[in-house]
Amino acid sequence: MSSATTVERPGAVTMKGQPLTLVGPAVQVGHQAPDFHVIDTDLKPRTLSDYRGHVLLIASVPSLDTGVCDAETRRFNQEATRFSPDVRVLTVSMDLPFAQKRWCGAAGIERVITLSDHREASFGQAYGTLIKELRLLARAVFVVDKGGKVTYVEYVPEATDHPHYEAAIEAVHKAGG
């Protein structure tokens, strides 16, 4: 994105109480989910269209190698066993795909698809979760219905806090999952 079109939201989140700037617009409920370009743990490019026709729970996290991100991804992996087969749970971070694959193997993660935004920060900019000061993603949760419409958004105000799991899970069920 060019600097002329870049949206910056100073103080949109904090990390350990320190205000941080998010790059990209805030995603809104009712809007079409923005496209993104990331890579999976096999280094294959992935976009939103790869998951068309599925209900999506998308978790944006700073790094799988932190306690809250680890716990969050494990929780959504466990919850995914109760979702319909039409649901895909995606966790996006700036972690390298090799680290994501290693972490998933060690943690026994089988129902969450981890995606890396490290190349372009495409997801972070499209979903407004890119932390300018750290080049990490802020903690956020999005639910997208089968038609590609955003039905739930949570930008967690403090990056070291957990998201509202129950609200996100309820949103997945309401979206058809």
Results as ranks from 00 to 15, higher is better:
Val144Gly: 09
Gln18Asp: 07
Asp161Thr: 06
Val150Met: 02
His37Ser: 11
Ile169Cys: 12
Lys16Arg: 12
His173Asn: 13
Ala4Leu: 13
Pro10Ala: 03
Glu158Asp: 13
Gln18Ile: 02
Phe98Ala: 12
Val55His: 00
Pro45Glu: 13
Cys104Trp: 02
Leu43Cys: 03
Arg82Cys: 03
Thr41Asn: 10
Lys174Tyr: 07
Trp103Arg: 01
Ala99Lys: 09
Tyr152Lys: 09
Thr151Phe: 05
Gln28Arg: 15
His162Ala: 14
Glu166Cys: 03
Glu72Met: 02
Ala12Lys: 04
Ala167Met: 13
Arg52Ala: 15
Ser84His: 10
Gly124Ala: 06
Val38Glu: 07
His173Leu: 12
His164Glu: 14
Val61Ile: 15
Ser60Asn: 07
Ser93Val: 07
Asp86Ala: 14
Ala12Met: 05
Gly176Pro: 00
Val143Leu: 11
Leu48Gly: 09
Asp86Met: 05
Thr41Met: 12
Arg139Ile: 02
Gln18Ala: 09
Lys146Ile: 00
Thr66Ala: 10
Ala126Thr: 06
Glu120Cys: 01
Val27Lys: 09
Gly147Pro: 01
Ile109Asp: 06
Leu56Ile: 11
Ile169Ser: 12
Leu90His: 06
Arg9Ser: 05
Thr66Cys: 08
Ile39Pro: 02
Val38Tyr: 05
Gln100Phe: 08
Lys174Met: 12
Asp40Met: 08
Leu48Ser: 07
Ala159Met: 13
Phe36Gln: 10
Pro157Asp: 06
Val38His: 04
Val112Leu: 04
Arg74Phe: 03
Arg9Tyr: 03
Val7Phe: 04
Gly177His: 11
Tyr152Arg: 03
Val23Glu: 14
Ala12Asn: 05
Ala80Phe: 07
Glu8Ser: 12
Asp95Trp: 10
Ile39Lys: 05
Ala107Thr: 08
Pro157Lys: 10
Val13Ala: 02
Ala107Gln: 15
Glu133Gln: 07
Leu20Asp: 00
Phe83Thr: 01
Leu90Val: 04
Thr14Lys: 14
Met1Asn: 06
Arg139Glu: 07
Arg75Gln: 14
Ala33Phe: 07
Met94Ile: 05
Ile109Cys: 08
Ala33Pro: 04
Ala167Arg: 13
Val112Arg: 00
Ala26His: 01
Tyr155Cys: 04
Arg88Gly: 02
His31Asp: 15
Tyr127Gln: 08
Tyr152Thr: 09
Thr14Ala: 10
Gly124Phe: 09
Pro34His: 07
Phe83Val: 02
Phe36Trp: 12
Gly177Cys: 11
His54Leu: 03
Arg88Ile: 00
Thr129Tyr: 10
Thr6Gly: 02
Val61Leu: 15
Glu170Ser: 14
Phe123Val: 02
Phe36Cys: 11
Asp145Tyr: 07
Gly17Leu: 03
Leu136Lys: 11
Thr73Ser: 14
Gln78Glu: 15
Pro10Arg: 00
Ala71Asn: 06
Met15Asp: 08
His173Arg: 15
His54Ile: 03
Gln18Leu: 03
Tyr165Glu: 14
Thr66Ile: 08
Met15Arg: 11
Gly128Glu: 09
Ala121Gly: 09
Leu43Lys: 13
Phe142Cys: 09
Gly105Ile: 03
Ser116Leu: 10
Pro97Asp: 04
Ser63Glu: 06
